[in-house]
């Protein structure tokens, strides 16, 4: 079958999306005002360390001043990557069509 890999990948993502929606519904119900679920695991580990009394001895040289600016840099990272992937796959595909 030609699209077997695509179907498998799509199904896996779909299954996890459904699981996420179901779990999220349960979490949102139990959440009190002002609380936010789905935080980062990195931050949770940092909280666990800090709860033991540890204080980080060095702080980042520069921090994104807001969540919006942080997401800007994350989007730039993804966009740059996607651009390169799309460019080379398109180049290869076009080249093959041209000669073949």
């Amino acid at each position: 079958m030609k699209y077997k890999a695509e179907i498998i990948a799509g199904s896996v993502i779909l299954i996890f999306a459904i699981i996420f929606l179901v779990i999220n519904a349960g979490i949102q119900e139990r959440l009190s005002d002002g609380e936010e679920a789905w935080g980062g695991a990195d931050g949770q580990a940092a909280d666990l360390i800090e709860s033991g009394g540890y204080e980080p001895w060095f702080s980042p040289l520069w921090e994104p001043p807001s969540g919006e600016i942080e997401s800007l840099f994350f989007s730039l990272q993804a966009a740059a990557g996607a651009l390169v992937i799309g460019y080379f796959f398109g180049y290869y595909k076009g080249k093959r069509k041209g000669t073949g």
């Binding site: 699981i19 779990i23 935080g39 989007s75 990272q77 993804a78 990557g81």
Partner: peptide, 18 residues
């Protein structure tokens, strides 16, 4: 580029964290 894209995605997991 693939490492760039994938490591920029923060995905929610089954544990209620990303």
């Amino acid at each position: 580029a693939f490492v760039f894209v994938l490591s920029s995605l923060k995905l929610p997991s089954v544990t209620g964290s990303c």
